[in-house]
Amino acid sequence: MTDATARKRGRPRRTESADTRDLILNAAREEFSERGYEKTSVRAIAKAAGVDSALVHHYFGTKEQVFAAAVEVAFAPALKIRDAVLEGPLDDVGERMTRMIFGLWENPVTRTPLLAIIRSAVNNDTAAAVFRRLISTQLLRRIAGEIDAPDAELRAELAAAQLVGIAMLRYVIKVEPIASADPEEIIARVAPVVQGHLTHSVNP
């Protein structure tokens, strides 16, 4: 089938589909960031993207599915870096993991969608479930798989909790002095704790 035939039948070309999908995703991230999950509607996302609501449903389905796609895109840089972090020796995985997370938060390009996701997850159970599912399947289980310990999943979750908690205080709630502290100072203090969660033996 030619492009001309496809257009006559109302089917978007592949490039047009990709562009429209990206346009909707960008609008969704902005809406979730400004309004949160509960106050964001498919209609509002469509309006911000300059498309019909039917197109949002066509590409993504429900609002929950749009949010899930936005979360996945926002965490794509972390998932790409993840394997590089885990390739090195476990003796310093805590520092590599800490630097990875802070690198994402310190970069304005990746920080904005992360803020949208965190704010939505904190205020809405559905958004929290989507966020939790992605983190568990794409990040924590992968990290736990590299740890040779019977409580590997707990270790990975404790390490993540350490980093998420600090990120909340620094970037979301903006508590001083942690909000304005030098990132290198925070990494130097936090990385050994993350390392301890991941690999250090636990005394009975």
Rank of each mutant, 00 (worst) to 15 (best):
A4F: 14
A4G: 03
A4L: 14
A6D: 06
A6P: 00
K8D: 09
G10R: 03
R13H: 13
R14W: 11
S17F: 04
D19N: 10
D22P: 00
I24V: 15
I24H: 11
L25C: 09
L25H: 09
L25Y: 05
N26Q: 11
A28T: 09
A28N: 11
A28C: 11
R29S: 15
R29V: 06
E30V: 08
E31W: 00
S33L: 15
R35F: 14
R35P: 02
G36K: 04
G36F: 08
G36I: 03
E38Q: 13
E38K: 14
K39N: 15
V42I: 15
V42H: 00
R43P: 00
G50R: 05
G50E: 07
G50N: 07
D52G: 13
D52Q: 13
D52V: 10
A54Y: 10
A54N: 14
L55P: 03
Y59T: 03
F60G: 08
F60Y: 15
G61L: 01
E64L: 08
E64A: 15
F67M: 04
A69Y: 08
A70G: 08
V71G: 05
V71M: 10
F75I: 03
P77Q: 06
A78K: 02
L79D: 06
L79M: 14
D83K: 13
D83C: 00
G88A: 15
L90C: 00
L90W: 01
V93R: 08
E95M: 03
E95I: 07
R96A: 10
R96H: 05
M97S: 08
M100H: 04
I101A: 12
F102N: 05
F102W: 10
L104E: 06
L104C: 06
W105N: 03
P108R: 01
T110G: 10
T110D: 07
R111Q: 14
R111G: 01
T112A: 14
T112Y: 09
T112H: 12
P113K: 04
L115F: 02
I117R: 07
I118W: 12
R119D: 08
R119E: 12
R119T: 07
S120H: 05
S120Y: 04
A121G: 04
V122H: 07
D125G: 01
A127T: 07
A128P: 00
R132F: 12
R133Q: 14
I135H: 08
S136F: 07
Q138T: 09
I143Y: 06
I143V: 15
A144S: 11
A144L: 02
G145L: 01
A149Y: 01
P150G: 09
D151T: 04
R155N: 02
A156V: 03
L158V: 05
A159E: 08
A159K: 09
A159Y: 06
A161E: 06
Q162K: 00
Q162R: 06
Q162H: 12
V164D: 08
V164N: 10
L169Y: 05
L169Q: 10
I173H: 05
V175H: 09
V175S: 09
P177K: 02
I178N: 06
A179T: 08
A181D: 12
P183M: 03
E184V: 00
E185Q: 11
I187E: 03
A188L: 02
R189N: 05
V190L: 15
V194W: 06
Q195P: 11
G196M: 05
H197N: 13
S201K: 12
S201R: 13
V202Y: 09
N203C: 04
N203A: 13
N203K: 13
P204T: 11
P204Q: 07
